[in-house]
Design a protein around this nucleic acid. Structure first.
Length: 365
DNA sequence: GACTCGTGGTC
DNA sequence: TGACCAAGAGT
């Protein structure tokens, strides 16, 4: 089959399929560029179901690009709290301020300008241009890579530059044969609901299975080929819930790096094979604590791409927070940007509103 | 290109 | 349960 025929048949089949099979999603009620941008930022490396409630809350809090531009970073982070990859929220706010500062009330249909905004990479620019502005700019995400790696039965990793360029060329050619806003979402919808990873794909439901080289060769489960390996290093660690008269001691993380400027209870990640108890003694030394610590026998694992830490929680009582920390009540803490794992740990210990605070560490008589 | 940046769900 | 996954971007 010629490339032209392949592109035309794909465009027609995907358009018809999308129009009858698309899911109702909150960000598909209209094609407002701000709505598209926020949803695409939230959907980066994040599942649709998880994004739904965050998107609704965000639009209630920051209904327009202008309202986002005038919001404080703390308010923006509080709204993003729990979604992860917080640079997405910071960049979204910075982008809104740049657009607003340029005298615009909404995003312009300008690929180059959009690409210059923080947080808008090749994928997001493609998504906004094609979905909001109906321009034939391809948006290549994990779904689209999987769909095309199967359609073309690609023997190499489609995430590499060469593979992505090949996919972008095919996708752009197809977008030009129909409505870009429909076809871009059709690629992703297909990858999300039919052309799913490994053996879970449902080729019987696929509108383009007839065009699929992997389907013909029976290699669907082997596509896409992945060359990335990840070694996850496991560590133990200690966290300390320091109870003070009006709450517990919380410190603020430095700017840059992991959880930039987030709040946290003091914790420490151990070296390789270090015990949680050893981590605790290093942590108390660092905080210059002399009060005795109570083992709360609570643990929580913080997981990341390259490492994870199993945190063990201790508690102690002090009359005032140690240097570098401030006192906050459990209620106040609930609205603070704080790593989700640490928040869970604190809630396990204190309960939703701190009602366990006294029973968990009875004062010495 | 390789590494970092969160979180929760799946099989 | 551990490895992998989910609508990527910045450095």
């Amino acid at each position: 089959m010629s490339a032209e025929k392949f592109h035309l048949e794909a465009a027609e089949a995907l358009t018809a399929w999308y129009n009858s099979h698309k899911r109702d999603l909150p960000w598909r009620l209209d094609r407002d560029p701000y709505h598209i941008l926020v949803s695409e930022a939230m959907l980066q490396q994040t599942q649709v179901e998880r994004v739904k409630s965050f998107y609704a809350r965000w639009m209630e809090r920051f209904p327009t690009l202008t309202s986002l531009a005038s919001a404080s970073e703390d308010d923006v982070l509080a709204c993003w709290q729990g979604l992860g990859y917080y640079s997405r929220a910071r960049n979204l706010r910075r982008a809104a301020r740049l657009v607003s500062g340029a005298g615009l009330k909404t995003l312009p249909a300008d690929e180059e300008f959009l690409r210059s905004l923080p947080g808008l990479g090749p994928y997001t620019v493609g998504a906004v241009c094609s979905i909001a502005f109906d321009l034939p700019v391809p948006a290549i995400d994990g779904n689209v890579r999987r769909v095309f790696s199967r359609l073309l039965d690609m023997p190499d990793d489609p995430a590499r530059a060469k593979g992505t360029a090949l996919i972008a060329a095919h996708a752009a050619a197809i977008l030009k044969l129909g409505s870009p806003h429909i076809l871009t979402q059709a690629f992703m919808e297909l990858g999300a609901t039919v052309c799913t990873p490994g053996t879970t794909c449902q080729c019987g439901q696929c509108p383009v299975s007839r065009l699929c080289a992997a389907q013909a060769a029976g290699t669907q489960a082997q596509r896409p080929v992945s060359t990335r390996r990840n070694v996850v290093e496991r560590r133990r660690g200690a966290a300390l819930l320091i109870l003070v008269p009006h709450g517990c001691a919380v410190r603020r993380r430095p700017a840059g790096g992991l959880w930039s400027r987030f709040y946290e209870i003091p914790w420490l990640r151990g070296e390789a094979d270090e015990s949680a108890e050893s981590c605790l003694s290093r942590l108390t030394a660092e905080l210059r604590l002399t009060a005795p610590c109570l083992d709360l026998e609570l643990e929580e694992t913080l997981k990341f791409t390259c490492w994870q830490v199993r945190l063990h929680l201790w508690s102690c009582r002090m009359l005032q927070p140690p240097a570098g920390c401030d006192a906050f009540s459990a209620d106040e803490l609930a609205d603070f940007p704080m790593p989700a794992g640490l928040k869970r740990l604190v809630q396990k210990a204190l309960g939703e509103s701190g009602e366990k605070q006294l029973e968990l560490f009875p004062p010495v008589r």
